[in-house]
């Protein structure tokens, strides 16, 4: 029996699950504060923008969005399967393409800051 290549997607899924559980809720809140221009030193739009402009900040944001996207894609694939849609290959192509597109867009937007 040949060893499976599923670890590629499962690895991203597992990492994304961990990040989604621990980091994403806090990030959503921080981003909301920034977007609403809350007058707190750390949460000003300018300081967040500056963080996103710094190379390490870009790397962190990219990493978090990357694994969250691929996590969501894989979760959706399994959920669709659980709902009784037995077209795993087609579903996988659609959800992973969306995650791939999101990854690409994240990269483009981050590089433009």
């Amino acid at each position: 029996m040949a060893k499976s290549n599923k670890p590629i997607f499962w690895g991203l899924f597992a990492a994304g699950g961990t990040v989604t559980a621990f980091v994403t809720p806090a990030l959503v809140l921080v981003t909301l504060f920034a977007a609403m221009r809350f007058n707190m030193d750390m949460f000003t739009y300018e300081s967040i923008h500056a963080f996103a402009g710094w190379w390490l900040g870009k790397l962190i944001i990219f990493g978090i969005i990357l694994v969250s996207l691929w996590h969501a894609a894989h979760r959706l694939r399994v959920t669709v399967h659980d709902f009784g849609v037995r077209a795993d290959k087609q579903v996988a192509i659609v959800v992973y393409s969306l995650a791939g597109l999101g990854t690409l867009l994240t990269l483009i937007y981050l590089l433009r800051i």
């Binding site: 029996m1 060893k3 499976s4 599923k6 399967h81």
Partner: peptide, 17 residues
């Protein structure tokens, strides 16, 4: 054992129900 359990029909069929 990995030759058997790390295959597609091994652990990777599990969807953690």
């Amino acid at each position: 054992r990995q030759e058997v359990i790390a295959s597609d029909e091994g652990v990777w069929e599990c969807s953690f129900v």
